[in-house]
Simulated assay, not measured.
Amino acid sequence: MRTAAVLARHELRLLVSLLRWLARRPDSGGDGKGSVQVFGYAQGQGAVMAGFWFVCAVETFAMAVLLRNWPTAHRVVLVLDLYTLLFVAGLYAAWTVRPHLLHDDVLRVRQAAHVDLRVPLDRIAAVRRETRTTHERADGELNLPVGSRTTVTLQLTAPIAHFTLLGRRRDVTLIRLHADDDRALADAVTRARSGSSVRPDRPR
Rank of each mutant, 00 (worst) to 15 (best):
A125M: 03
S194T: 15
P120I: 07
S197M: 14
T96S: 15
R149F: 12
R168T: 14
D105V: 09
P145R: 04
L117I: 03
T153R: 11
A179Q: 06
D181V: 00
R191K: 13
R108C: 09
P200W: 08
V106P: 02
P120C: 03
V119K: 05
P200Y: 07
P203Y: 10
R168W: 14
V97F: 01
G195V: 03
P159A: 04
G90P: 10
V119Y: 03
L154T: 01
L165Y: 10
R193K: 09
H178R: 04
R191D: 13
V119H: 02
V198S: 11
H100F: 06
A161D: 12
H162P: 06
A192E: 13
R149W: 12
G140A: 07
G167T: 01
V109D: 03
V198W: 14
H114F: 02
V115N: 03
A125N: 11
V146M: 05
R123H: 12
R98I: 02
F163T: 15
G140H: 03
D180R: 01
A94M: 01
R191I: 13
S197I: 12
V106L: 10
L174I: 13
E130L: 14
L144N: 05
D122P: 08
R128W: 01
F163M: 07
P145N: 03
D201G: 14
H162L: 01
T157Y: 11
A188Y: 08
A188S: 11
L177N: 04
D181Y: 07
P203W: 02
A126I: 06
T133S: 15
G167K: 06
A184T: 09
A126V: 12
V189G: 04
S196A: 05
